[in-house]
Amino acid sequence: MIRNLLIWGTVAIVLIWPMAVAATSPLLAWRDSIYIAAGLSGVFGLALMTVQPLLARGVLPGLDGLHGRRWHRWGGALLLLTVALHIGGLWLTSPPDVIDALTLRSPTPFSVWGVIALWALGLAGTGALVRDRMPPRVWRRVHLAATTVAVTTTVIHAMLIVGTMGTWSKVALSGAALLALGHALYHSRIGWRRGR
């Protein structure tokens, strides 16, 4: 019981703390609501990426096995929606900057990492739609590879940005996302400890 509370409490802090810091950033005073929503969508997306491997592995108390994987699917759909809001909001705020980023002509390195993450997430998400037509072994490899790229490049993307996220909450959330990913990789059927 206490263990369950500790796990869910940690998850709640990881999800809420970075959002709370970003939502109270002094920079928001000089941004319109669309830009603010776009930025917060990005933070929420990274938080979702932290939870997704835990749901997939079924390690969250009460959400084990099939329950966890069902929530993982909804989490994935929500993550794609979040990314769409993130990019759409930035597009409305400054169209040429987003066009530069998407065409890999941006002067800022972080946007290249963001676009790599976008494509990796797109691959992981669209793969989920056609997974029934794939051998499970292939699907796991594709999904795991794509999401590994997505999480790591998103972390780099976030760390390079001077924005609304607080330094410590950003480091903590990035670390949590990488830990959750590492846990899933370690225990995956194609990882080092097959089938555990």
């Binding site: 920079l27 000089w30 941004r31 830009y35 930035l90 972080f110 940005i161 001077v162």
Partner: peptide, 8 residues
């Protein structure tokens, strides 16, 4: 000037 699109 304030930070926007990742950099001030």
């Amino acid at each position: 000037i304030v930070p926007a699109f990742g950099q001030p």
